[in-house]
């Protein structure tokens, strides 16, 4: 819907001014993409850790 005239608006929002009840509720089902995101991130962490420990001269491996 396109209104021809822009409406007035508040300068800022505060927590109390917002409808926020649903921010905590309504958790979706855990899906495969999330597993992929979490596991992928952890795998990347392990790779970064191994490379880091080998390369960084101050790591415990040196």
């Amino acid at each position: 819907m396109a209104e021809e005239k822009a409406t007035e608006r508040k300068e800022t929002l505060s927590v109390s001014a917002l409808e926020a009840e649903d921010v905590m509720a309504g958790a979706e089902e855990w899906v495969g993409t999330e597993t992929w995101l979490v596991v992928g991130s952890l795998i990347a962490a392990v790779i970064a850790l191994v490379i880091g420990l080998l390369v960084v001269p101050t790591s415990v491996l040196h």
Binding site: S41, A44, A45, A48, L49, G52, V55, V56, S59
Partner: peptide
């Protein structure tokens, strides 16, 4: 260098 490596790992964990 150490800060960069530690940060990347920390982030990803």
């Amino acid at each position: 260098v150490a800060g960069a490596a530690a940060t990347i790992v920390a982030y990803l964990v």
